[in-house]
Amino acid sequence: MLLFTCPNCGPRNETEFHYGGQAHVAYPESPGELSDREWAEYLFYRENTKGLFAERWVHSAGCRKWFNMVRDTVSYEVKAVYRIGELQPETLERIASATEPEQAQPLAPAQANPTTASEGV
């Protein structure tokens, strides 16, 4: 049994949560313009990372809110928990070490998805 820390409710048993798969998959910006291949990627292709994986969970038996988590898919260790709309810690670090440090802030939810339509699928 895994123990997850809901950003709203704190540590709870895994059974109180439901899995939502890979995080940060953006809905295509112009769905009408996608090729069959791009649609296939959006619908059916997800990362299947061995190692650190950013994924979504919902605290279905508690506050019923979705959140993101970085978990090691080999050891199952939880490395980070962050809210929907916030950037993945790894992305934050990457931005922080880049030349414009002032960008290293979580973005407002509406802008927060770090992936573009074409890379995020």
Binding site: C9, R12, N13, T15, E16, A61, G62, C63
Partner: peptide, 9 residues
């Protein structure tokens, strides 16, 4: 708190 008692929400 909101939780489960024997799987009952």
């Amino acid at each position: 708190i909101t939780t489960e008692i024997n799987k009952i929400p």
